[in-house]
Amino acid sequence: MMTMHHDVWQQLIVALLVIGSSVYVFWTVSGLSWRLRFIRAAHRTLPPLRGRLDRLRHRLESPPGCSACRSCSK
């Protein structure tokens, strides 16, 4: 029984690590348009994270070096 317990825990941690890594790889490899698509999909499926997602999208879409983002109230 103890080993069974170990196994469930191990599987849970492994599953989280694998999912996290897959998302990270996808994010790193994809370009801007894919990232935005990704955010839109997350927007629909994960309502509690909308605020964060909006800020992220804003940061990705704004031209780099735009000083307005720095001074805007976050």
Binding site: V14, L17, V18, G20, S21, S22, Y24, V25, T28
Partner: peptide
């Protein structure tokens, strides 16, 4: 520690 680690995890899976 970043992309290589993540790829290793995915590849292991």
């Amino acid at each position: 520690g970043g992309i290589i680690l993540a790829l290793m995890v995915v590849l292991w899976f």
